[in-house]
Computed example of a mutant assay.
Amino acid sequence: MLQRLKKNVPFIVSLVFAVAAAVLIYTSVQASRPTVPVLVATRNLSVGEKIALSDVAVKRLPVEAVPQTALRDPRQAAGQTVTGAPILTGDVVRAEHLSAESSLAATLATYAPPGWVAVELPPETGKNMEGVRRGDTVDVYAETAGGPNGQGTVVGVVAKGAVVLATPWTTVGTSGQQGQSASSKSFVVAVRPEEAPTMASLLVRGKKAAVTLVRRQ
């Protein structure tokens, strides 16, 4: 056994040197690859959040791995609002990820079809539906005129397929972290423009509303 091992020593030494040389060549090639500074997220950023300087950092990446729309300077992102989709920790921050619009406007543009408008629902709406989150689809019910013989009121759908933009438990607060917001007491939903007047009248007239969660097809 010892004799066989001695015979294989030259081969083993050659193999070790070959592996070491390969590692050295790979390291040298990697070190010589051109890199550029890009902006990456330091934490998960939700749609509608306003970016602070502490939310991004500069990292050098190989040129071929950097999108053309990547941002390079933290000042380009600070004060901007996340739109389109969340930015995950370590993701390259791109120009299309950000908007100069307000948090609600960016959320509306992200989750609702073009042309839809945001409207606030009366306080206490959906207070027991804490499973509802932004982007969910709901039907909104409220009292409408037109009971039997044109008298009284009935409960009917005043907005069908509305898109949830904010709730009392998922509103983005002033700290930039997603969570409970003490200043928010209502749902905000996106509806078709023709539904907006009826929806707004609920709040103006002190009416109540209810929401039902619609299962996506």
Results as ranks from 00 to 15, higher is better:
94 R>A: 12
97 H>K: 04
97 H>D: 15
98 L>D: 11
99 S>R: 11
100 A>T: 14
102 S>T: 15
106 A>H: 00
108 L>F: 05
109 A>V: 03
109 A>G: 08
112 A>S: 07
112 A>K: 02
112 A>Y: 02
113 P>Y: 04
115 G>Y: 01
115 G>T: 09
116 W>N: 13
118 A>L: 07
118 A>E: 05
119 V>T: 10
122 P>T: 06
124 E>N: 13
125 T>Y: 01
126 G>M: 00
128 N>P: 00
131 G>N: 05
131 G>F: 10
131 G>M: 07
131 G>R: 06
131 G>W: 04
134 R>P: 07
134 R>D: 04
136 D>T: 03
139 D>R: 09
140 V>L: 05
141 Y>S: 12
141 Y>I: 12
142 A>S: 14
142 A>P: 07
142 A>H: 06
143 E>W: 11
143 E>V: 02
144 T>R: 14
146 G>V: 00
148 P>R: 11
151 Q>R: 15
151 Q>L: 15
153 T>V: 08
153 T>M: 07
157 V>R: 06
157 V>K: 09
159 A>W: 01
160 K>S: 13
161 G>M: 11
161 G>F: 12
162 A>S: 03
164 V>P: 05
166 A>V: 10
167 T>K: 09
167 T>G: 03
167 T>W: 09
169 W>V: 09
170 T>L: 04
170 T>W: 06
170 T>V: 09
170 T>H: 13
173 G>A: 13
174 T>M: 07
174 T>C: 00
176 G>A: 06
176 G>C: 07
178 Q>R: 15
179 G>C: 10
181 S>L: 13
185 K>F: 08
185 K>H: 14
188 V>I: 15
188 V>D: 01
191 V>N: 07
192 R>I: 03
192 R>A: 14
195 E>K: 10
195 E>V: 04
197 P>N: 08
197 P>L: 12
199 M>Q: 08
201 S>R: 13
204 V>L: 15
205 R>H: 10
